[in-house]
């Protein structure tokens, strides 16, 4: 994930910064506990497509 791109990417809902989870190939919004998938190199920044992170999943 390009560093400059990550700098301007935010959660489409709450507009807070995202973290890149390299292992899961996801962009994580800690505030909303959502994981936005990256498919074929294209981040899918849609609420409907995001994974809801279970309460017991650690976010790093």
């Amino acid at each position: 994930m390009d560093k400059k791109l990550l700098d301007i990417l935010v959660c489409p809902l709450c507009k807070s910064k995202l973290t890149y989870n390299r292992k899961g190939s996801e962009l994580i919004c800690k505030a909303d506990r959502l994981g936005f998938p990256i498919r074929d190199g294209i981040p899918v920044m849609l609420e409907d497509e995001a994974r809801k992170l279970p309460a017991d999943e650690d976010i790093e």
Binding site: I8, L9, P12, L18, I42, L46
Partner: peptide, 17 residues
């Protein structure tokens, strides 16, 4: 070109980008 799947009504970018 970089690509993002996004909704025009809820853009995933910071203000003033």
């Amino acid at each position: 070109i970089e690509y993002q799947q996004a909704d025009a009504e809820a853009l995933p970018f910071s203000d003033n980008s």
